[in-house]
Design a protein around this nucleic acid. Sequence first.
DNA 1: GAGCACTGC
Length: 710
Amino acid sequence: MPFSESLARKKGAESARSNKNNLDNGSRKQRIAQQRKSLPIASVEKQLVEEVRKHETLIIVGEAGSGKTTLIGITQPRRVAAVSVAKRVAEECSVEVGQKVGYSIRFDDMTSSSTRIKYMTDGLLLREALLDPYLSRYSVIIIDEAHERTLHTDVLLGLLKNVQLARSHTSGQLCNYGNMKANSGIICMNENNAQRSSLQKRCQNTKYPPLKLIIMSASLDAKGFSEYFGGARAVHVQGRQYPIEILYTHHPESDYIDAVLITIFQTHVEEGPGDILVFLTGQEEIESVERLIEERFLQVPKGDLKILVVPIFSSLPSEKQIEVFKPAPPSYRKVILATNIAETSVTIPGIKYVIDPGLVKVRSYNPCTGIESLVIVPISKAQAFQRSGRAGREGPGKCYRLYPEIEFSKLLNSTVPEIKRCNLSNIILQLKALGIDDIIGFDFMEKPSSTTGKIDTVKQASIVKSLEELFLLGALTDDYKLSDPVGKQMTGLPLDPIYSKALILASDFNCMEEMLITVAMLSVESIFYAPQEKLEEARGARIKFSSIEGDHQTLLNVYRAASEFLEKIKTTGSKDKIAGKSLFKWCRDNFINSRSLRQARDIHSQIRGQIENMSLRVASCGDDMVQFRRCLAASFFLNAALKQPDGSYRTLTSSQTVQIHPSSVLFRSKPDCIIFNELVRTNVNYIRNITRIDPLWLAELAPQYYAAQD
DNA sequence: GAGCACTGC
């Protein structure tokens, strides 16, 4: 390294300080130039450029703080990252965002014809591939944060591998994978060839330049990526971070919440200034720890510093989320209680101490029952590193891992990729639309296990289950090809397949207006917000919107009430910005999550536009809500349930015993026959977003599934 | 009587 580690650190600390001052543009530019030179990646810049030139695929392993994100980037797993990195790079290049450097994320496209460096979410690139299967506009694609192994990243890797092969063929170049190791498996190779040729056939006469692919990962070994890309070259970039002292417990903790509290107070009393970040598993746990800290604080010897507890989790309204970014007032130490959101999604300044119980709540999916569940599991080693790293961003830090060191060694190296933990219907529909018909043979990075030679039966079950679901929705034909027009129409919509189907059916039921709003509202999380301390008030506010028929009409009522409010504001001549502020206040008064509502309004306008371009009838059923509920029954017939004598429900398709979730408006009234949208297991099997239907409708509207019994 | 984290032409 051409620079000394300590010098680099000193510079980092200086720039962190000067950040607080309002510097003019000139010195900010100077600072950025200085920072750039000091980044470890700067020293290997020439080598990297050379490697990119020489190799078809390159894997760059850069530790946190190496500066790999600011090199050149294209896909990011998160929207905020795509936007912020684009802005940073534009600034470094002294250009306007949207010109040479731009970004494109859903609902926000900041690119132009002059854009040469485009940041985007990986989901958006996948969508682009539907229109342009060769991704012909791109000569280099960079996948950042590949170690996170999100569903979109994994599918994109497989897709890009195919595109790269196809493009290297059309351009007459040698296939980079010609020397792929013999043990890759013959079946697998044959099917890849079939997929490749389907891609090639479509653009036989067009020649494309080869596609350069760069995978950027923060994981310690690049072996997995390298093997997947036929032994692609890997480059390692040194990291730069302040030292973090890791402390383990001597024995396993029987009560980790108690251990968390003890560690918070011990740190607070014994350690110097600096904020504490605590990783917890969910909202409920965060709220209970918040109460316990306040109770126990009274018993702690009084020092000069007081404690300010700030929670952060995804469904917390944004005006409360921003509290964690504000510095603690004088004589206060901030204690941030966070879910996984603080692991990667948000970076909180001022953290010096991290408390990590080593647990995380994850979604898991049982393909046999189709039930998703939220389970608390130990984190992976990679997650443990990511969490402790949060203590060393501004200076040396400490991380308290509330488990013995021997337990750490037993953790999985990396988190189980999302593709193994979720319903695949949506992604399979997209692959089908790309002409990839053999889904089971598709070359996902999670390949048949090489040690046992067994194929991954869970994932296969998951694929089969999703194919079945898509067939039942009419998206696939008898031989599992994409159907026309239903399947094709469904791939055009950025929605869960079952919601796309509901829109297609709504055309026949003359309730498109209602269904557009409903699926937009169903596509966002937690429209209602009920803080612990105002639970009664929130309940009162919700009654205004409640429909005795169920949650779907209730969501419709909320959306329409908001739209009417906005219309009224606008007729008084208010500007958009003022109207937006009024809507924000309306949301607060009605205990509606304004972020979710805005998202639903964005989705609504997007899908409305797409539906208008299809040959579907856009009409309203007016006051005839029976028509709307019949359409819901026809769409969600796979999720129907009947009341049992004990007040629980039994699902008709899988005979599961389920309960109505307490957040449903039908929680108390418990109608005899219902359809629902979501089945998630926490303590019990809960169903959410429910509407009352007439059981006779099922046989009438879904005879293919519910043949008449008598 | 209860809601991990992301994401979509």
